[in-house]
Lab assay of single mutants.
Amino acid sequence: MPVRRGHVAPQNTFLDTIIRKFEGQSRKFIIANARVENCAVIYCNDGFCELCGYSRAEVMQRPCTCDFLHGPRTQRRAAAQIAQALLGAEERKVEIAFYRKDGSCFLCLVDVVPVKNEDGAVIMFILNFEVVMEKDMVGSPAHDTNHRGPPTSWLAPGRAKTFRLKLPALLALTARESSVRSGGAGGAGAPGAVVVDVDLTPAAPSSESLALDEVTAMDNHVAGLGPAEERRALVGPGSPPRSAPGQLPSPRAHSLNPDASGSSCSLARTRSRESCASVRRASSADDIEAMRAGVLPPPPRHASTGAMHPLRSGLLNSTSDSDLVRYRTISKIPQITLNFVDLKGDPFLASPTSDREIIAPKIKERTHNVTEKVTQVLSLGADVLPEYKLQAPRIHRWTILHYSPFKAVWDWLILLLVIYTAVFTPYSAAFLLKETEEGPPATECGYACQPLAVVDLIVDIMFIVDILINFRTTYVNANEEVVSHPGRIAVHYFKGWFLIDMVAAIPFDLLI
């Protein structure tokens, strides 16, 4: 008679799926529990143990900040960024110097990925580790590398530091407007667009060049630039800015003055950032001319202004700041037409079709709590990747769950009947059967004279019903998954307890 339990259901295979997918890609990662103190490590794979030199037993239950890997060259700011990422709910990448158990130093890129439950609360953290440099290539500990984003994938490793954006290309926007319009339909740009040429040739750093990471940081200074100062900065030398009595002219307006920039070969870094931020506020060169004239017309309804409409929906549905990093990277690809469009465009503009998908598509409701890094690593669709929660398995109709209350009560009843059979069957065979043979035949009273025979008949009927119930009862397979398919249940029961239950259900007393 089957006594099969499996009270692990309803099970959740999400954690096993993450481990299996990460292991298949030869990654070095740990999984931490966000619900406990210090976000203790609950799993670390073999790749991480080989990377740091510690065994799994030495890593388990330690804080996922990996303070046991810190050393003299470990930056405090990087460690603080990892700790801050564990307090938030967004994906974050941090470069930090770690030390192995043998004392060797290596520069590592740590990717902190939160995993949320159905309520939107962070319950786990996945920390992925990628070695960037070994100890002989690690720089000085005073050099802070965590304020910069990861290198873009479309640049060669040897040319990542030679990417320079020439400031004269930004200063000569109005001069290039006529050349853009003359391109017409034969050019790649839309009317009114501004073409910015980027020099990728390796050259020595000069005062006129600005690194790509500095251009990325310009967006942080746009908020500090007032509207009046932006307007004066875009007017140009024809209309000098008016300053109040006793007030000095704005240095932001002076930063885009061609006369002032041409007199000296070098520009201050602050002026460069502010000038680029001011130019980015204009949607095209037409807006710059309109600002000089004193009238700013409404933005025209053409394809170039609607190019950012799908980007707005993608940004609203993005799951991490990696989408913004990807957008900034692609927006700086050289030799393309940049349409400086305000994100607050007309909502009635139709979304044009684009061959290049900048932001990841909208994630469906079932995966809105899973970050983009987890979705990318697992390579699963929205119909396959579940949320991290207890999910009731989908069972067929008329199927009994093996952990249901009805099955528990039924098993206790069958257990009592088995005990009765084990006690009274030998007793009936030894004593009652002998008395029946010696006594007179009682054929007239039937079952009324033999109450134990009636009980034995009921017990046999219950055993037959138990066999039928076992054909529709779920079970737990070797992978700790609840199986509810009727065919698989029948095959599993035939290979197991079916023969024993059938022999126990045969009414031998009635056959004798």
Rank of each mutant, 00 (worst) to 15 (best):
R366H: 07
C66W: 01
A303K: 12
R269L: 11
F125R: 06
A260Q: 11
C105Q: 15
S140K: 14
V196H: 01
L248C: 15
S272A: 06
R366S: 11
P251G: 11
F125C: 06
S209P: 05
I336R: 14
D144W: 06
R176G: 05
C276W: 05
E230W: 06
L225G: 12
N146R: 13
I359T: 04
L315K: 07
E177G: 15
V110R: 01
R148I: 07
C44H: 01
L87S: 07
F348Q: 14
T65K: 03
A217L: 14
F68E: 01
L343E: 05
V295H: 08
A97W: 14
L380E: 04
R356M: 05
L86T: 10
A34Q: 05
H309Q: 08
I363D: 09
T371H: 04
F340K: 14
P227G: 07
I363P: 13
D197P: 05
T162I: 05
E274P: 07
V196C: 05
H254M: 13
L87Y: 14
L165Y: 14
G139F: 12
I363T: 09
R252Y: 04
T270D: 12
H221C: 13
M218N: 06
K344P: 10
E95Y: 05
A57R: 14
S351Q: 15
P150E: 12
S239N: 14
V36R: 07
V41P: 01
R280C: 08
N146D: 03
I18A: 05
H302K: 14
A253N: 05
I126T: 09
D111F: 05
D321E: 11
A228C: 05
H221S: 15
P298T: 09
A89V: 13
T152R: 14
H368M: 10
L51I: 07
T162W: 14
T152N: 03
M133G: 14
R281Y: 15
L378H: 01
A293H: 07
I96S: 01
T201Q: 09
F106D: 01
D323V: 04
L171C: 12
A350E: 07
A204E: 03
A260T: 12
S26K: 14
I288D: 13
P299A: 04
R281F: 10
R27D: 07
T305P: 12
L127T: 01
A160R: 09
E37G: 14
Q335I: 01
L256V: 14
P251S: 13
